[in-house]
């Protein structure tokens, strides 16, 4: 196969020939089986290009619509709309009529016309019948098209109704979620106000202590919570080295089960073991004010810690049960 013909086959398949080129090519195509084979080769080649497009399924309603249209056209095609055929009247042969049309003497014209009356009547009836058939066919086609359109519209309506339902459900869910978020926000706000209030109280106490002339001799330690379930637990320890006495103010510590006590420890770097400063329980609000005095002399109170111990306290702290610590 000549390269230029083969090129034209490729361009023909891709619709790239100009009008004249295409007409000439199609003429050649009709006469040359080898060229047809070349066109087939090129056409098959384009199939791979078609498949390189991302594969996306068509809209599902189109199938029903096309099938309805196909059915409609097919139904319409079963009734021949044209040409219209007229049946000969029973008492007269077609040939005779034809002959009389093609020739015959004028004096016999009147009787001949009379003979034609049944033919004319039959023709009129035939035309009317054919027209009715055509109308019926047309009506059927129209009806099928309307049915197909209805199917499409119903599907679209269902689609929109589904979309509206989904949208309403999402709206309701969003409203619930918004209400829940508002509630959580209110709670958080209240908690924050509460914390602010307590912070103010502690600051006030601190300020009061600062006014104390002996404040410079007082060590103040804030003990932070190590409890996952009570992150708000807090304690402040005031310690006077000179008198070996202190005051512990605690808030938000959880109540302990029976048989358990909180125990305060003073951590002195000069000692291997923290010094116990007493045991305590908290009230229902998790609060306590405890004046304490360690069981042994403390050279330097670097940190204070509270642990959970057995009731009455332990000689050494259980560090796994550390509740608050600070220094």
């Amino acid at each position: 196969m000549d390269d230029s013909l083969s090129e034209n086959a490729a361009l023909y398949v891709l619709g790239l020939l100009t009008g004249d080129e295409q007409a000439a090519f199609e003429r050649a195509l009709q006469e040359d089986p080898a060229l047809a084979a070349e066109v087939r080769t090129m056409t098959e080649g384009t199939l791979a290009l078609a498949a390189s497009a991302p594969q996306v399924a068509p809209p599902p309603d189109l199938r029903a619509q096309l099938l309805a249209a196909f059915q409609t056209e097919t139904d319409a095609g079963q009734v021949p709309a044209a040409p219209l055929t007229v049946l000969p009247p029973p008492s007269h042969g077609l040939k005779k009529t034809s002959d009389s049309r093609s020739g015959g003497s004028p004096p016999q014209a009147a009787p001949r016309l009379l003979h034609l009356l049944p033919w004319a009547a039959a023709a009129v009836l035939g035309v009317m019948f054919a027209q009715q058939k055509q109308e019926l066919t047309s009506t059927r086609a129209e009806s099928s098209k309307i049915k197909a359109d209805n199917v499409s519209l119903t599907e679209r309506e269902r689609h929109y109704l589904d979309a509206i339902r989904i949208s309403e459900a999402a709206k309701a869910e969003a409203s619930t979620s918004l209400a829940s978020t508002r509630e959580a926000l209110e709670k958080a706000k209240a908690g924050l106000e509460d914390l602010n209030g307590r912070h103010s109280t502690l600051v006030a106490e601190l300020n009061a202590l600062r006014q104390d002339s002996q404040l410079d001799k007082t060590r103040i330690a804030v003990l932070g919570s190590l409890l996952e379930n009570s992150p708000k637990a807090v304690a402040v320890s005031l310690w006077r080295q000179e008198t070996q006495q202190g005051l512990l103010v605690v808030e938000n510590l959880p109540a302990l089960p029976p048989g358990r006590d909180y125990q305060l420890w003073v951590i002195d770097p000069s000692r291997k073991i923290p010094v116990s400063a007493g045991v305590f329980k908290v009230d229902v609000d998790g609060k306590v004010r405890l004046e304490f005095k360690p069981v042994a002399p403390v050279r330097e109170a670097s940190k204070f810690a509270v642990t959970v111990e057995r009731e009455g306290g332990s000689p050494t702290p259980d560090l796994k049960q550390l509740v608050v610590i600070g220094g």
Partner: peptide, 20 residues
């Protein structure tokens, strides 16, 4: 361009030969 199009289509058809 014409030659590339032609050669490309022929090559595609050859590649698809086993399939078709």
């Amino acid at each position: 361009v014409k030659a590339r199009i032609r050669r490309g289509l022929i090559k595609l058809r050859e590649s698809l030969g086993q399939l078709l």
